[in-house]
Design a protein around this nucleic acid. Structure first.
Lengths: 314, 314
DNA sequence: TAAATTTGCGTAATTGATTACGTAATTAAT
DNA sequence: ATTAATTACGTAATCAATTACGCAAATTTA
């Protein structure tokens, strides 16, 4: 199908189904050619019974990887054709044991040749191909068991979005965003304090002019995250005003801002980073940990909401 | 599934289906993750409409390779969700033209990211594998178009059965079979003649002792075909009594016997093979042609049923 | 221009599988 | 010993696709 060359890999599932339907249909004709009165869908059930032992419905279902109702109906159909016999379990009355009938066993003898020929035909076809589909299926079964498609897509999305995130230096045009992003989370959990208004309304005077820095994270050009380095002394910056917009969570923007801030502190020959936060902000504390910050006990903070202090030696 | 390692390639169809179902199911979750209200099965239809042009039901069905009722119901479902609009054809009132609605177009914008991510995820998975399943499917689609599974299996069967055919020299224990096999076809088309009874009842006296040879084809140990070389002169044998049992047709036994006879004639330094037959025996004449015999006009034959004579120069 | 054929598409029935649910038999727990 | 939980498996409902069929519009043919 030419169509699938345009859709891209998105349609892998559909394409697989089409092929499987094609093959199953042709396999049906093969039974006719060998004059064997059996449907392709019976094959797995027939196969597990071909050893001769009797097996219960669920046991068969498990072995062939179908649901038990599916096996139940297949067995009913095979009964009608006289291929199998059923008998209730002697010790466990719920169980329904199935085995091949005399007729089923006779077909089993005749079907051997078909097995060999079909196997050989497919094996030969596989040899004509460059990419072995049998092994390819096996690989995919394994692959998806390791990590399912959703997880893979999620990872891919994060990767892509991370690439679309850009960290830039502060510019007055970001002042509104700088204030808004911080005000959002502060007023959600706490209350805006005087010190907040000072630095958020006048970042130039209170942060930059005092030797500090402000970083803005842009996602598709829009400011979605902020963080500031406030100069404490020649060797130390305070990491503060770390905020990520609600709509931009889960893109790893916190991590990107954090590492960018650390990088910048190093460039300005700082020896230490310090921060104040609150333990109810679990994702934030988590991020600080991942960035390498350790808990310290130190000076009391000007902010009421602070109940934890952390440091990172550069 | 461990099961499929035991069944052999016979279960290729089932195995493909299982994988396709697994992938489709996981793909469904992906739509949820991107918060897009669409079902995986809508994807092909959505995709062909995403260019913006309106298309009729059958046109869509053709492009995506589904049946038109399938497209019809999918469109109905998409209508309910407000993703598409329909309008009857202006020139042709039977046609039902479908196009994306404003809402559909909006989703089309949002879905782009999902395309890229899913594509990338699958592409990466493909890179983790040794056997590229995407290309493997493509190869199989091509392979089955060239020669379908049934034909492949048929060829395989012939090959196998040919291997089970053995050509042996005459032995008195084959006399009954030698007579029976020939009598069967002769009396089916013609009438047994005096000359027939002579050579079939007493092959030793009438064929072997006069410097001729008889070959018997065995299938699984049972005689199923015969042919004789009757000495005409030092340079010539007559190829006669060529017979293949009705139950053993289609296994290429005629060809095997014919080539064996030619081989034997060469070994006995014959220069020419001669035969008599009747044009109503089309498969036989065909076989003689394939073996290299050419029509000649010659002596009248002792057999009434003969209306064609052929020769092969060795 | 009327009749026959083809085309477009909707509805119904079928297929092969699934989940959901109910019932009876077993097994475990109190 | 009674109650609760689990297991076996059948029936019913559902799903995604298909074929079968029918009707009406359009096109071709005579």
């Amino acid at each position: 199908m030419e169509f699938y060359n345009k859709t891209g890999k998105m349609a892998l599932g559909s394409r697989l189904r089409r092929l499987s339907e094609l093959i199953t249909e042709q396999a049906g004709k093969v039974y006719g050619y060998y004059d064997i009165d059996m449907q392709p869908k019976w094959f797995p059930v027939f196969y597990v019974l071909s050893a001769g032992e009797e097996k219960s419905i669920t046991q068969i279902a498990q072995e062939i990887g179908h649901s038990h109702p599916s096996v139940s109906t297949i067995v009913k159909e095979m009964m009608k054709r006289g291929l199998v016999q059923e008998s209730p379990g002697k010790t466990d009355g719920r169980k329904n044991y199935i085995k091949l009938s005399a007729q089923g066993l006779a077909i089993n003898d005749r079907i051997r040749d078909q097995y060999t020929d079909v196997n050989a035909a497919i094996e030969n076809a596989l040899n004509e191909t460059q990419y072995n589909i049998w092994k390819a299926i096996e690989e995919w079964e394994f692959l998806l068991e390791q990590k399912d498609l959703l997880k893979r897509v999620q990872d891919e999305r994060k990767l892509r979005e991370r690439k679309e995130v850009e960290v830039v230096a502060y510019h007055p045009k970001y002042q509104t965003a700088f204030k808004q992003l911080n005000e959002d989370w502060i007023s959600q959990y706490f209350k805006m304090e005087a010190a907040d208004y000072k630095s958020l309304d006048h970042p130039k005077e209170y942060i930059l002019d005092k030797g500090g820095h402000i970083l803005i994270a842009l996602y598709k050009g829009e400011p979605v995250g902020t963080c500031a380095l406030i100069k404490m002394d020649d060797d130390t910056f305070e990491l503060a005003k770390m905020a990520v917009g609600a709509g931009a969570k889960g893109k790893g923007i916190g991590w990107i801002l954090g590492t960018a801030a650390i990088e910048m502190a190093k460039q300005h020959d700082a020896k230490k980073l310090y921060l104040e936060s609150n333990t109810i902000l679990k994702p934030a504390i988590n991020l600080y940990h991942k960035l390498g910050f350790k808990k310290v006990t130190g000076e009391p903070s000007p902010y009421e909401r602070c109940n934890i202090q952390m440091e990172l030696n550069l």
